[in-house]
Design a binder for these strands. Structure first.
Lengths: 129, 129
DNA sequence: TTTTAATTACGAAACTTTTCGTATTATATT
DNA sequence: AATATAATACGAAAAGTTTCGTAATTAAAA
């Protein structure tokens, strides 16, 4: 089993990853400007975090030019899966349907999404355990 | 807005809370014996954590007897809600239905639960945005 | 070219969480 | 009553995360 798959990014790491997932790749400046608009933090803090993440193998960077370009080495999907599984095996163990219903409550899902979920549900019906 | 509602227990705190939620109330010994069966850790570690949680207002304790009895001050439901909302606003933002479908994939839900979810879905249909 | 501005490197402080060792106190056993 | 056992109290170390200041380096501007 892949180690990257299992690693759970910290809160700050997730913040950075989200930006990199959105943009595909970015410089420290790019990332920091977005983070700064939400949270009061210094440039070198973001820099250091991204350097540490690179050491940990969460990011890769292109050092050809003076300004380095970073890319995520984890996919958003794998990370989502990892966190979701953690919740389902932990806090929501034995209450999986509560998680589903809670998620339905949370956002007003678009009709298309509701339909998609309905379709998705069908595949689990008439299944023998 | 209630502070307790917002506080996100740490990983170790959650482990202890799960046990207290299951049992209603318990001593350090009770909690530790269960944790020890899964994780290699010392008794005083569990003790200290529960003392800190009491200071933080996550637990209350009855100190009448020598052996103290602890109870959770957070409900499992509020805690689940809090973590779920965090995910929906963070890692799963804009991918709420992915969370739902991921949860459906994860466990073989009982037919009754599937039915319950189907029913639950109905309430969101025919809603005007 | 000289000066200014922006970037990386990096150590270390500040915080938080987790872990443990030791002392003290209370209960149970002999 | 004396001894052994079990519990709490508590400081502090260990480990992990986040933050920042300063120095060195590179590029851009004057």
């Amino acid at each position: 089993m892949n180690e990257l798959k299992k690693y759970q990014p910290t809160e700050s790491e997730l913040e950075i990853l989200q930006i990199l997932w959105d943009k595909g790749s970015a410089t420290v400046r790019d990332v920091h400007d977005l983070i700064e608009s939400v949270k009061d933090t210094g440039y070198t803090t973001t820099l250091k975090l991204m350097q540490i993440m690179t050491d940990k193998g969460l990011l890769e960077r292109e050092t050809g030019n003076r300004t380095h370009v970073y890319k995520p080495l984890l996919t958003r999907e794998k990370t989502q899966e990892s966190f979701l599984n953690k919740m389902l095996n932990g806090l929501f163990k034995g209450a999986e349907s509560r998680l589903i219903m809670g998620a339905l409550d949370n956002k007003q899902l678009a009709p298309a999404e509701l339909q998609q979920i309905k379709e998705y549900l069908k595949q689990f019906e008439n299944k023998q355990p």
